[in-house]
Simulated assay, not measured.
Amino acid sequence: MKITKKEASIPIFANMTRWENYIIAAEKIITGYNGSLPLHHYLKTFFKAHPHMGSRDRKRVQQLVYHFFRLGNWQQNLPLKERILLGTFLCEQGPDELLTFFKPEWDVTASFEDKLAALGLQWSVFPFAKHLSAGIDAEQFTRSFLQQPKLFLRARPGKLAAILRLLEGNYVYEQIGANTIALPNGTKTELIIPDKSWYEVQDLSSQETGLRFHPKAGEHWWDCCAASGGKSILLHDLQPAIHLFASDVRASILENLRKRFAEAGLKNYSSKVLDLTSPALRASMPRTQFSGIILDAPCSGSGTWGRTPESITFFKEAQISEYAALQKQIARNVVPFLAPGGTLIYITCSVFREENEEAVAFLEQVCGLKIEESGIVSGYQRNADTMFVAVARREG
């Protein structure tokens, strides 16, 4: 998706306040964006085409755009400017000069419920509630879209104390559990912690899926949809003496994995580009059995929409069944490589039943695995992503 010449021409009116110019810029971005690529990529391209905008201007316009998309299709009958202001009103929790300029009667410090009451509105932003997995509170989940999740770090073995010393007294942070640190989103960790091998940026719920990994020295483990390798590194940190094989269908993603592994100092592994839907998969595999398989399946990503709120607007309901069919196809092809007594960890960052509970039923009823645990890893009440994890075993 390219920025057109028309989109690149945003007039800055000298007779207008910066707040009015911010709204004009946000409107241009919103009307020019069609969801064909992640919003943050579009914004980078857009701002590159507008070098006259300073860093403060870019940050504020970006906030307005994200506030708008956090509303999904809710109140879409309102004019664009009014929806931008409404999104900002609901997302901001402290004094805001832009809102004071446009809507001085709005109390930004009021509670969410009082804000809605003052406007005479009822909250309803999520169009796919009937598909939600068991145990998810639809209202609380959708309200979580209004706030960007936190940035979570996982301290690598033996590095927590050193990281905390760098943070103590200078930065706002929270330690969670034994190895997790929560920071405000947007924190420039590379400027705080000079050695990238000390930590991994990994969401809290993603880290907690690793509580189901129990690798033993000498075992062969396959991270079959490895992406950039966050869970592979977690697995390796739990047991460095495993034989790790990582695969993904995208060569560019595996190249990112190799760079990330190099930064983490992880060398004892092998990797390969594999299409897990291919009928010729077995001929491409380096071995026929693994003690453990991590199937972090391609999915809707609906549990991460607080980070990518544009998805609420552009995601289509039909995609749920498409992802569910893909997950079953991959599972059917991957399970035969699980050794007797071996464990398959099925993971999604989805909140949809079709991708979660129904996938587990498929693993049990069609693939013949015994389900030992399954359920939502809730993040929406903790400023984190929401995920799903199941532990399945092949009886030997």
Rank of each mutant, 00 (worst) to 15 (best):
A283N: 13
G135K: 12
N21G: 08
K2V: 01
L151Y: 06
S374P: 05
L344G: 08
D107E: 13
Q239T: 07
F68M: 03
S350A: 12
A217Q: 12
P184W: 06
Q75C: 10
W198E: 02
G306I: 05
K328H: 06
V65F: 12
F362Y: 15
E27H: 02
P157V: 11
I347Y: 07
E97T: 07
Q202P: 01
F101A: 04
L71R: 01
Q327S: 07
I293N: 05
D296P: 03
I29W: 10
T88D: 10
E208P: 00
G94E: 15
I330K: 00
G186Y: 06
A392R: 03
T109I: 10
G120N: 13
A134I: 09
R260K: 12
K150F: 05
L78N: 09
G72R: 02
S197L: 01
S378Q: 13
I347E: 04
L86N: 03
Q289P: 02
E395A: 13
A324R: 06
N15L: 13
F101R: 01
N77Y: 09
D248A: 08
E317N: 05
Q207S: 01
K259I: 11
R307N: 09
L39Y: 10
T187S: 13
P149F: 02
V273P: 12
F213E: 04
P194Q: 06
L338A: 11
A384F: 08
W74D: 01
R382D: 12
N73W: 00
L39N: 05
E200R: 08
N77W: 09
W123S: 06
N383Y: 09
I253T: 15
V201Y: 04
I242C: 14
V366M: 03
G120E: 14
F101E: 03
P11M: 12
A339K: 14
T142D: 14
K5S: 12
G177D: 06
A182P: 08
S55P: 00
D296K: 03
I24C: 07
G169N: 07
E317W: 00
G32H: 07
S55M: 12
Q329W: 00
S36D: 13
A390D: 07
F213C: 09
W198Q: 06
I294V: 15
N77Q: 15
D237A: 12
F47T: 06
Y173D: 13
K5Q: 14
T209M: 13
Y22L: 07
V61M: 09
T343M: 15
N333L: 02
N73V: 03
